[in-house]
Computed example of a mutant assay.
Amino acid sequence: MDPKMGVKSCGDINDLPQDCLANVLSFTTPEDACRLSAVASTFRSAAESDSLWELFLPSDYRDIISRSIDGSESLLHEFQSKKDLYLRLSDHPILIDSGHKSFNLEKGSGKKCYMLAPRDLFINWVSQRWKWITHPDSRFSEVAELTVVSWFGIRGCIKTEMLSFDTDYAAYLVFTTNSTAFGFDDVPAEAYVGIKGFEMKKRSVYLKGDTEFLTRREDGWMEVELGECFVKGGEDVIVMTLLEVKRLNQKRGLVIQGIEIRPKKCT
């Protein structure tokens, strides 16, 4: 008993088992755990432990990796620790489902991110007005290049059960334009993102020009946000659509790498 307080001492935090400390850290984020390990030696060993990073990895990560075109065995055994595997999945997207999707983790939170390749999208006139080409900066083996068309529609779908629950997601068209591109400057396209079967909010976006809508990515591609959707859970389907049907002028030169869906960052 403490002679002054009359209360039994609970001991020092340093006396707690590593698994217990790892469990405490699991209620933070991967980013917070790394910061704590840098400033508090008490947490350093727990913050590097496999037991912690197993909790930060998605519960179905083995199933996702098993769908990799590189083979699950090589990915699972290539890394000496679960933290190394987590960082690999954060920094380098893996191709899954016959190379028609890519998967990675949002580094700071561990939330799931996907990109749907053009082969995994429904594109109007794809066999007549688009052609399949390779691109040196694409993560996919093929991208879709628009030859010439007067209107177009692009749609992708993803099941909510594939994503992280209780998360605000945003969908982005990832694209570029070639040197012959025209027809996208002055007319916005219409974008819709939402749960299938429910009303979706329309968003107007531009695919060319210096506008607030476009962002240049670190990989050299451009992206434009199509909309956002809160993923609560369940077995719903998120539909992501881009349409340009109002102005029937000729358009060409759009190059699509895919539609990416990732957690919406708070600002």
Rank of each mutant, 00 (worst) to 15 (best):
D2L: 07
M5H: 11
L16A: 02
P17N: 08
D19Y: 01
L21P: 01
S26P: 11
P30G: 07
P30S: 09
P30M: 08
C34Q: 13
R35T: 14
S37K: 07
S37E: 10
A38L: 15
A40C: 15
S45L: 06
S45D: 08
A46R: 00
A46G: 04
A47V: 03
S51D: 00
F56P: 06
L57V: 10
S59M: 09
Y61Q: 08
D63L: 11
S66G: 11
I69V: 15
E73R: 04
S74G: 11
L75F: 13
L76K: 00
L76S: 04
E78Y: 01
S81G: 07
K82Q: 09
L85F: 04
Y86E: 03
D91F: 07
D97S: 12
D97T: 09
S98W: 04
H100C: 12
S102W: 06
F103Y: 15
L105R: 12
L105W: 15
S109Y: 15
G110N: 14
G110H: 09
C113G: 06
C113K: 14
L116P: 08
P118M: 03
P118G: 03
P118E: 00
R119G: 07
D120C: 13
F122A: 11
R129G: 08
W130C: 04
W130R: 01
K131F: 11
R139K: 15
E145D: 08
V148F: 14
V149M: 06
W151F: 01
R155N: 09
Y169G: 12
A170Y: 03
A171Y: 03
Y172I: 07
V174T: 14
F175D: 08
T176L: 02
G183Q: 02
F184D: 03
D186A: 10
A189I: 13
M200Y: 00
M200S: 05
R203K: 14
D210H: 11
E212C: 06
E212R: 08
F213T: 09
T215S: 13
T215Y: 06
D219V: 02
M222H: 02
L226K: 10
L226G: 09
G234T: 12
E235W: 09
L242W: 04
L243N: 03
L243Q: 01
N249P: 01
G253K: 00
L254R: 02
I256A: 02
Q257L: 02
I259G: 14
E260A: 10
I261N: 02
P263E: 03
T267D: 06
